[in-house]
């Protein structure tokens, strides 16, 4: 339990840090951090319970996008402001690194393993975002574009 609270705080700070790198508006910083922290909590919990990193990433990015969507509606800001900092911790930086390391060690079996895992993680982030964002465009379609 303590680990999860610690992880929540670390993920919160990390997401706000990434948000500042992307020049997120000041008013959106804390909200973007919240999405990222919840996402990471889900990620570490599901990863721990099921030992399936792709599933964990999928569910985490799904909820990050959902939280971003809610903030985007209530704050009338583009949704990217909230989801981009949140998903950065899920982007497979370790996958890129270990793939490269395995290639250096001439261990191509391991490189293929890490590389395909990194690719699958990217695809699962993309898939989760696609589902939520498609729902978003469906909602927008319901409101007719005001001409004049």
């Amino acid at each position: 339990m303590v680990t999860y609270i610690q992880n929540f705080i670390f993920a919160y700070v990390a997401t706000i840090g990434f948000a500042i790198l992307f020049n997120t508006p000041k008013s959106a910083l804390l909200k973007a951090g919240f999405g990222g922290a919840v996402g990471w909590l889900l990620y570490s919990f599901i990863n721990f319970k099921s030992d399936n990193i792709v599933l964990a990433t999928f569910i985490a990015s799904f909820f990050i996008a959902l939280i971003g969507e809610i903030f985007a509606i209530t704050n009338k800001k583009p949704i990217t402001v909230f989801i981009i900092p949140g998903i950065v911790p899920l982007v497979p930086g370790f996958g890129i690194y270990f793939t490269m390391l395995s290639i250096l060690e001439k261990n191509y079996t391991k490189a293929a393993q890490y590389g395909s895992e990194a690719l699958l993680i990217s695809i699962s982030i993309a898939g989760a975002l696609t589902i939520v964002l498609t729902l978003n465009s469906y909602r927008k379609k319901k409101q007719p574009i005001k001409i004049k």
Binding site: F22, T80, I84, I87, V88, I96, T130
Partner: peptide
């Protein structure tokens, strides 16, 4: 240390926008 440090460079924005553009 290396994984932590390269996280500031990973292409989060490019990836997200690539997905959004493709959906649209």
């Amino acid at each position: 240390v290396i994984i932590g440090a390269i996280m500031v460079m990973v292409p989060g924005v490019a990836m997200t926008n690539a997905i959004r553009d493709s959906i649209a």
